[in-house]
Design a protein around this nucleic acid. Structure first.
Lengths: 232, 232
DNA sequence: CGGATCGTTGACAGGTATCAATGCTGGTGG
DNA sequence: CCACCAGCATTGATACCTGTCAACGATCCG
């Protein structure tokens, strides 16, 4: 199996206006005439878990709208370990910091098999300069970046480990429309919560024993009420 | 002494184009004709330490460019304590998340006597809709939000307490052009680093004993080389 | 079947939260 | 003017939590 598959490529309005998740994506507010500003094809691509969308400090040419799956944004630390600073899902925009000629600020790695739309930055900037219709959605994406960062800082890195794991499970459960959600590896849970892999494993195992968490393959289900009681 | 002082108010280009820190602020790229889009006065205000720029969930009418001093953005936690999620200084924009009709997402409290320009959001949105010259600086401010959040997550909430305090001191020292910097209270240091007040105090006191940190009034000086060696 | 990867569990040392007491300092009112 | 108070900083004692090092089980795949 290849790490990357290009499903299709199209130009401008040809397909975007039929997009089933159009209301969730960056181009939600564009008018018919705006699409003529898009000069390069937009690719619909599939990535398997473990492959990378882009690397930190790589010069940036694209942003990526997540259509399905999950992407982690990571930063390596001086000691060789890494920290996950955000998780991206349906409707989020990966690489948004690269607008205006900046470089990517993270490694973006696929956590759960993902389907994404790859959009050329050059087209976004042209569009934004010539039309007022992109601004609102772009601002909404930036607001989400801040909101997610704040959740990380105020909920996921405060309190003891048990409380952090409980908060993460609820965050994951509530950020999908499904009953179940994707449970990251113990190492990734550690990198999200700034705890060790072993501690993450102990707590997940304990939650399973207590019936607060159930897993079938990679699908996880939680007992929300029980987890909410673990506060600090 | 009043908590708030309004130094002056002006309209549009009347004063902004003479601003001594114009190159650092949101309006850096505006052209002469853009200023006519500003319909309401911009106030230059002074706030003393401890007073609030705005409250979380308050409906937002203004953003604030920081001209001097320091502002903390805080979130209260369910147990009554609080977490500082960002520090704002010269050139930063407080309340940026309130564009597009959103509410403020934090409490903004003055940490060190601050001078700010209060800008009506309505004018910013009008300007941004009618002129392409604001977009670049606005994007730069959002990028800074993400960058600061990442520093918090990847440097200031990882590793043991001693390493975190060392990282914070270096961050504070390097984010000002002066030799010295403002040292927050032990409680605030704790709220920044997700450690207790007592732990923060112990480590600051130890750094002082070792000569890594010196203070005169509220001015602090560090031995950067010594602090850099403390990595985990 | 064996190896690789990931998850789980144990033992233990070291770090941090907690509770508590004591300095320190600037401001206020008698 | 000075004593007092409130708020902040410092320090100590202790229990608990988490990191570390290590071993072992489970699962998948070639």
């Amino acid at each position: 199996m290849k790490a990357i598959t290009i499903n299709q490529a199209w130009n401008g309005a040809e397909k975007c206006d039929q997009c089933p998740i159009r209301h969730l994506v960056l181009f939600a507010d564009l008018q018919q005439e705006d699409f003529s500003q898009l000069h390069q094809p937009i690719n619909d691509m599939d990535f398997r878990a473990g492959s990378a969308l882009y690397q930190e400090n790589e010069s940036a040419q694209f942003v990526y709208t997540i259509r399905s799956g999950m992407v982690k944004l990571i930063r390596y630390l001086p000691n060789g370990s890494y920290r996950i600073v955000r998780l991206l899902q349906l409707g989020d925009l990966a690489g948004i910091e690269a607008l205006n000629g900046s470089k990517y600020q993270h490694h973006a790695v696929i956590l759960q098999h993902a389907s994404v739309c790859r959009i050329p930055i050059e087209d976004i900037e042209r569009l934004n300069f010539n039309s007022p219709h992109l601004y609102k959605q772009l601002t909404a994406r930036w607001q989400k970046v801040q909101q997610d960062a704040d959740i990380w800082l105020a909920e996921l890195t405060v309190g003891n480990s048990k409380k952090r794991v409980a908060s993460l499970l609820m965050y994951l459960a509530n950020s999908t429309a499904n009953q179940s959600f994707f449970l990251p590896s113990r190492e990734d849970i550690g990198a999200i919560l700034a705890i060790t892999t072993e501690t993450a494993s102990r707590i997940i195992a304990e939650f399973k024993r207590l019936g607060y968490l159930k897993t079938e393959q990679q699908n996880a289900f939680i007992n929300q009420a029980a987890l909410e009681k673990i506060n600090q």
